[in-house]
């Protein structure tokens, strides 16, 4: 789990980004984007740090973090499996794909496996509707996925 550690080095990286901002007012979302890029997620400690460096209340920061689906307060797995649940994928069987994936990994959408290997996320439309149903593992798109192919795709990443 060392990749999720909240090292001082990471906080320094974030600080140096905040220092480059010509104007701190209105930059909360941009700073959170950067923070999630550095830490991988936004735990309480990071949120508090952001609040102090932008001179905002912790409640304000938490309010924004919890509002947007892109921000996560939980550490994520080594591999992120995104299942597109946009309408085009939905009518071509995305629900079945998601269920199969959840059964196979023993977690629900939005959760991470206990060994920290995989996170499943349902996402709204990657825009590859011609390939529906679509799943995306670490950014690589798999199109026209059939339920029977799910375990095979996960296996490609199991040892990596």
């Amino acid at each position: 789990m060392c990749k999720n550690a909240l090292t001082e080095e990471k906080f320094r990286e974030l600080d140096s980004y905040v220092d480059t901002l010509p104007e701190k007012h209105g930059m909360l979302i941009s700073v959170l984007h950067r923070a999630q890029g550095i830490f991988g997620y936004l735990p309480k400690e990071v949120q508090l740090h952001v609040a102090r460096s932008l001179n905002l209340t912790a409640a304000k920061v938490y309010g924004v973090v919890s509002f947007y689906s892109y921000f996560t307060e939980e550490p994520r797995g080594d591999h992120i499996i995104n299942v597109c649940t946009g309408t085009a994928c939905f009518v071509r069987g995305a629900e079945g794909i998601l269920k199969e994936l959840e059964n196979h990994l023993g977690i629900k959408s939005g959760q991470t496996t206990p060994d920290g290997r995989f996170t499943i996320d349902a996402l709204r439309c990657v825009g590859a509707c011609g390939l529906a149903p679509v799943i995306m593992v670490d950014g690589k798109v798999y199109g026209r996925v059939k339920t029977g192919e799910v375990t095979g795709i996960v296996k490609e990443y199991a040892e990596v």
């Binding site: 979302i29 941009s30 509002f67 947007y68 689906s69 892109y70 921000f71």
Partner: peptide
């Protein structure tokens, strides 16, 4: 450019 963060 300003980034959204996933809110319809």
């Amino acid at each position: 450019i300003k980034f959204g963060a996933g809110a319809f």
